[in-house]
């Protein structure tokens, strides 16, 4: 589904990714772990099409398309979803209006009939109920006055409604209390199936107790230095990233 080959990227003159390669297949959940500054968020944002990074080398293929040729909107409509680390506030813009616009942008692109307000509300209310999210979410401004935990739950709500093919969750677990973490995990577990894929970008192993990954990768200095299964995350929990990095030298 997603194939990244030898990706190099920088911001200004600082190199952040230095030859990263990664292949993700349908039905898989990948966890990307690593210390701060290792390039995890950069990878997530480049896949989504953030042009504040310069991609200097390498390729990204998605559904057999050259992803780099698509705009961020097109990537989204093609089924790439980024759950942001710090979801931004858009004051005054109603959350449900925003979601409906997003949903219809995708439907229009795919040539499906646009959803009307009534049908949308029905769908949104059902989703909210299933995810155990407060119904007031729909009537509030996009992330306006939301706590950190509420913002992350809002990302999960959007992901569920938009039904992407690949969901990249950038530190979606950070700053969450245990209840919020469970809501997020429940959302992801319900979302995952044989036809889609999830990339969990995380600093801690904690999230992986609730969402079982198929593969775990350790990122350091813009490269994947080790890949393994779930047990790798547990190992990291004990040894820490520093030890991991040292052992590779």
């Amino acid at each position: 589904m997603l194939e990244i080959k030898n990706l190099h990227a920088k911001v200004g003159t600082t190199n952040i990714l230095n030859g990263l390669s990664l292949t993700i297949k349908k039905g898989e959940v990948h966890a990307i772990m690593g210390p701060n500054g290792s390039g995890k968020s950069t990878l997530a944002r480049i896949i989504a099409g953030d042009d504040s990074y310069d991609v200097t080398d390498g390729e990204i293929h998605y559904k057999n398309k050259n992803l780099m040729e698509l705009s961020p909107e097109e990537r989204s409509r093609e089924g790439i979803f980024l759950g942001f680390q710090y979801p931004v506030e858009i004051p005054g813009l109603n959350n449900s209006q925003f979601l409906k616009a997003a949903l219809n942008a995708k439907r229009k692109y795919l040539g499906i009939e646009e959803i009307d307000a009534f049908e949308f509300l029905k769908m949104a209310r059902e989703t909210i109920k299933r995810l155990e999210i407060d119904p007031s979410f729909l009537n509030r401004g996009v992330n306006e006055g939301f706590s950190g935990g509420e913002r992350k739950r809002n990302e999960i709500l959007q992901m569920t409604m938009l039904e992407p093919n690949i969901a990249i969750l950038d530190e979606t677990d950070s700053g969450l209390d245990i209840d919020a973490l469970k809501v997020v995990a429940k959302g992801v577990n319900e979302f995952r199936n044989q036809d889609n894929a999830v990339i969990l970008v995380t600093h801690y192993q904690r999230l992986l107790e609730y969402i079982k990954p198929d593969k775990v990768h350790v990122l350091s200095e813009g490269r994947i230095i080790r890949s393994g299964d779930e047990s790798l995350a547990k190992e990291l929990e004990k040894t820490g990233y520093i030890a991991e990095k040292e052992s590779k030298k």
Partner: peptide
């Protein structure tokens, strides 16, 4: 830019 990128990532022009 963050607001615009957020919207674009959700498929909105």
């Amino acid at each position: 830019e963050d607001q615009l990128f957020y919207c674009k990532q959700r498929g909105i022009e």
